[in-house]
């Protein structure tokens, strides 16, 4: 391979079925075992929601996959490359193919939003001209649904929801194939959360992303997740679509999806579906009936 070819060598898009494969993962912190012999496969092109009670190790699982947490046992392969065998900061050719949105956005506070987006570009592709890099940064910020003015603002000047979007813009900087989102809608108002869900879905479809999404938000699960992985008892106890999960006979799953909040999210989802067919005469009655039913339930 000549030197020039080497300089501009690139990765072909991943064509396999499972960009993330976790096998026999065990994580211990002192006496506490968070994961034991955990298996999980993420399919290419899906949005996989990860749910579980507090302390079941959702974030630890994500940190294990992206190589920030070395597990006690097991293997994690991303794009068929083992993350575990690599040293924490060693270059193994996957870090430029994923984007991570941390819970608080984790923006570099001394850089503007635009400069934040430029950081990964500078790190991996210094050969890109300043002009193009600025252009990329600008359209990524717009693509994440932020207004134009946000580009030159500092993170401290942004609201919580805007910080998340700015974090998303940085996660998308390198056109990743894989996107990790850690509770993207936590702390957002319902309108902002719904907008963020829509954005995630749209981006996934246009950019052809695979999304690993940790969430507590039942609406997010119903709206945008193709499949949901449930973490409990130190394992992934089930991975399936939401309707299939609701049929499972596990106390935590039942409590989660069929509890009051779970039902509310489900009703909302059903109402949305029905409203799409509002012009059908029968649907209008059904919507009213459902609306009444849910409001009387709330009163009770």
């Amino acid at each position: 391979m000549s030197e020039e070819e080497n300089a501009f060598h690139h990765h072909a898009r991943y064509r396999g079925d499972y960009p993330i494969v976790v096998e026999g993962l065990t994580n211990r912190f002192g006496e506490i075992t968070v994961h034991e012999d955990l298996d999980l496969k993420v399919q290419r092109g899906e949005i996989l929601g990860v749910v579980g009670g507090s302390g079941t190790g959702k974030s630890v699982l994500m940190r294990s996959i992206i190589g920030l947490q070395t597990p006690n046992a097991g293997d994690v392969r991303v794009f068929d490359k083992s993350i575990i065998e690599a040293e924490p900061d060693e270059e193994i050719g996957v870090r430029d193919r994923w984007g991570v949105l941390f819970q608080g956005g984790a923006l570099f506070s001394t850089l503007t939003v635009g400069e934040n987006v430029e950081v990964p570009l500078k790190q991996f592709y210094p050969e890109i001209s300043d002009e193009l890099r600025h252009e990329i940064a600008r359209y990524k910020v717009l693509l994440s649904g932020l207004p134009e003015e946000a580009v030159s603002k500092y993170p401290s000047e942004l609201s919580g929801g805007m910080k998340k979007r700015a974090g998303l813009a940085r996660a998308l900087a390198l056109d990743p194939e894989l996107l990790f989102l850690d509770e993207p809608t936590a702390g957002l108002d319902p309108i902002g959360a719904a907008a963020f869900d829509r954005l995630t879905r749209e981006l996934k479809e246009t950019l052809g992303l695979t999304v690993f999404l940790i969430t507590h938000d039942l609406d997010t699960l119903h709206e945008i997740c193709d499949r949901v992985a449930v973490l409990a008892d130190r394992k992934v106890i089930a991975v399936d679509t939401v309707p299939n999960l609701m049929d499972l006979d596990h106390p935590w799953i039942q409590e989660y999806f069929n509890g009051p909040r779970g039902r509310a999210a489900l009703t909302a989802q059903a109402l949305d579906e029905l409203r799409k067919h509002m012009d059908l005469p029968i649907a209008e009655h059904a919507v009213k009936a459902l609306d009444n039913a849910s409001s009387s339930k709330d009163k009770a």
Partner: peptide
């Protein structure tokens, strides 16, 4: 998706 994403905003 990139339509209308033009911007002249300064990065710094």
């Amino acid at each position: 998706a990139l339509e209308g994403m033009d911007s002249e905003e300064q990065i710094a």
